[in-house]
């Protein structure tokens, strides 16, 4: 039930017995790299048009206001 079980609940029990000092720096490094690669991947996804349109509309509003204020 303990060591080799990768079921959802049991991992937590294992995690406590490891403690933070138990994590190899190489492992930490590998996880860090994977996290950054994962996030980078998400960031590279093309933005949907509606968000770009929204920003354009907001900018247009701002320009209108600036113009009416005589700036």
């Amino acid at each position: 039930m303990k060591a080799n079980s990768f079921g959802d609940r049991n991992v937590d029990e294992g995690a406590e017995s490891f403690g933070e000092a138990g994590l190899d720096p190489n492992v930490q490094d590998a996880i860090g790299k994977a996290l950054k690669a994962h996030f980078q991947d998400l960031m590279q996804a093309p933005l949907p048009d509606r968000l770009l349109v929204l920003l354009a509309e907001l900018q247009a509003k701002e320009n209108d206001q600036s113009a009416s204020q005589g700036n």
Binding site: V11, A15, L23, I31
Partner: peptide
Amino acid sequence: NRARTRLAQ
């Protein structure tokens, strides 16, 4: 720390 440990496991 818990997250990294669990991920590693």
